[in-house]
């Protein structure tokens, strides 16, 4: 069963002083998300990711198109109780403590007081805020607010969770924690739909990704297939600049950083390149096959040549 079906969502905004000009936020978008998968919604800033999420959350109305969530109209209240949402750079009522905030959102989601009493401590423990439950949110750092944001998104144990740029602005440790949380949601069988422009996060987490640019869907791909594609090239890393001309003669492109040289060459030229390095007594560091990467796919869909192709 499909978790999300976007059926031609389209959004244009009135612009200009007389509001007669039309600015396209999202061109007709058709997209399916399977139940139980982690789906990455990729694109640079202004690609239409947040617009799509706002449309799905009912925060803005589409100019045209519709959507179904779990087979039902996306705006039905019953559907809303099955989904959770973390907005981009979330801001919450700073006069509340995490416990009060979760009680509030839980009540709005239709949870009983007994359920909330049992669930909130466990959830705070899970997001690492067990001992901050009674501190007002105005004293929280950005990373802590993001954890509160994740907790509020799943307080009612939804089957489908939408996360808008969940790693944005977090330090490496915070990003790792969010990644682990998404993995744990997926392990529980939940569907996760998250937007990001950090490709390494998407590559590590997603089953499938969609690439957006300028309000348009540019492609949808299975991450495992994208990264296992063979490129027919290998990357050699060594120390010693003297070997560069000999390797470049084998149709390689070399990048120098200090004494370290990194070269991408056709697989058929590997042994010739290694011979050249041995002749120049260069110090070999690594030889790696160059596979397909999400970055290559992303750049290709955006119409930007990948580094190896430049």
């Amino acid at each position: 069963m499909l978790a999300v079906e976007i059926l031609g969502f389209e959004k244009t905004y009135a612009a200009g002083f007389w509001r007669k000009k039309r600015k396209v936020g999202l061109r007709p978008l058709h997209l399916d998300v399977n139940q139980g998968e982690v789906f990455g919604f990729l694109g640079p800033n202004g690609a239409g990711k947040t617009t799509t999420l706002k449309l799905l959350m009912g925060l803005i109305s589409p100019t045209a198109g519709s959507a179904r969530i779990f087979g039902r109209h996306w705006r039905e209240p019953q559907v809303r109780s099955r989904i959770g949402f973390l907005p981009e750079q979330p801001y919450f009522y700073d006069h509340l403590t995490p416990i009060e905030l979760l009680n509030y959102y839980g009540a709005l989601s239709g949870m009983s007081r007994d359920d909330l009493r049992a669930r909130i401590p466990k959830l705070l423990e899970r997001v690492g805020l067990a001992d901050q439950g009674t501190v007002q949110l105005r004293k929280f750092s950005k990373g802590m607010l993001q954890r509160v944001g994740i907790a509020q998104a799943v307080i009612h144990d939804p089957e489908l969770v939408f996360l808008d740029e969940p790693m944005s602005g977090l330090d490496p440790l915070g990003r790792r924690e969010v990644r682990e949380f998404i993995e744990s949601l997926n392990a529980e069988g939940k569907t996760v739909f998250f937007s990001t422009h950090i490709l390494s996060d998407a590559e590590a987490l997603c089953d499938r990704v969609a690439v957006m640019n300028k309000g348009e869907l540019r492609g949808v791909g299975v991450v495992a297939e994208l990264v296992s594609q063979k490129s027919g090239r290998v990357e050699i890393v060594w120390q010693g600049k003297d070997a560069i001309p000999a390797v470049q003669a084998l149709h390689a492109e070399c990048h120098v950083a200090g004494e370290t040289v990194r070269a991408s060459i056709p697989e058929s030229q590997l042994y010739a390149a290694l011979d050249a390095l041995r002749r120049q007594q260069a110090r070999l560091i690594a030889v790696n096959p160059v596979g397909g990467s999400l970055e290559n796919y992303f750049l290709q869909k955006l119409g930007v040549p990948a580094e190896a192709e430049q």
Binding site: M57, L59, R80, F85, Y105
Partner: peptide, 14 residues
Amino acid sequence: EKRTLYPVLSRPVG
């Protein structure tokens, strides 16, 4: 303005 409304209206709240 503060976007505190987003997590409210994404729930079954009219």
